[in-house]
Amino acid sequence: MFARFQLQFVLLLTVAIFSGCTPQFRREKTEVKSASDVVIHFDDLSSSNNSEETPDEAATPATTPTAGNESTTATTPKKEMVAATTTSKPDVAKQAPTTTGYTGPAKFVGRVVVKGDVPLFSALLAKGAATKDMFCSEMAVPNETVISKDGGLGNVFVYMKKAPRKGVPEYSGEPFVVNQKGCIFIPHAQIVRVGQPFILKNSDPVAHNVRYNGFASQFNDTVVSGSTDGLTKVIEFPERLPAGMVCDFHNWMSAYVLPVDHPWAAVTDADGNFEITNLPEGKWDFVIWHEKALYIERSFKVTAAPNTLIEKVFEVNASKLSQ
């Protein structure tokens, strides 16, 4: 009496299995198509913001009442309006161009200073420290966070975030030299142009290796002792952040290299000063970055025009350095 029902059931089950869930895998035809034009759905991009950002907006009372209007206006006029509101803000006065007495292309100078109690840095490697490397422990290897007596912070990268598409001068200068002496990299922080010969030297009687750990490219080469000619590397690709460079034989050794594809970048000197000259005309975003403090400024806006001198002192909280 059940037989008919059962038969139907088995059939039903079989059909369900084979129709609903055919074993695709063995005969799977993963669909492959050619890449057509990129279609970015702006609806998704903007709608997600509205839903996600509402609490943010509420939490930022700084938003001007005009913000609502701005977002409804067309794109081109809006840019101007944003620019207008930006320049009209009071704290922009700090970076107000001081045109007095300066002639020549726009120049961006400044200083990075440490605010607060400067922490004491111990040496990277104490003299005679227990390490198998006799040479490196002959003297103390100093700490490489450079702070001058009046609080200037050295080894800070100041660089234009994104090079202009046109008008970047070709690089035609000297190769850049990094020496390894006394079991540290000299200099500790450096800017190289992409394509610039980058010579790694080793003045120590022991071998070092240089492991450059960039985002876009990496290398890891040994530089044997007493290498006077050094080893020439070329970094082909720019980075958005300074890349670390270490020696795996001496684990305290580290350096930072920023390959850039434009000349508007500098590293602060031991007093914390930097100077970037020949800025082209326009509005530029600058990044100010330090290995310990990380971003000091994520995008510092500089408006450059001929005969402008932009001066700015950046402050870093000392607590950020001691981390």
């Binding site: 907006e57 913000a67 977002s71």
Partner: peptide
């Protein structure tokens, strides 16, 4: 201070 989440989004 210069920007709002809306301007950044835009």
């Amino acid at each position: 201070g210069d920007e709002t989440s809306d301007t950044i989004h835009q």
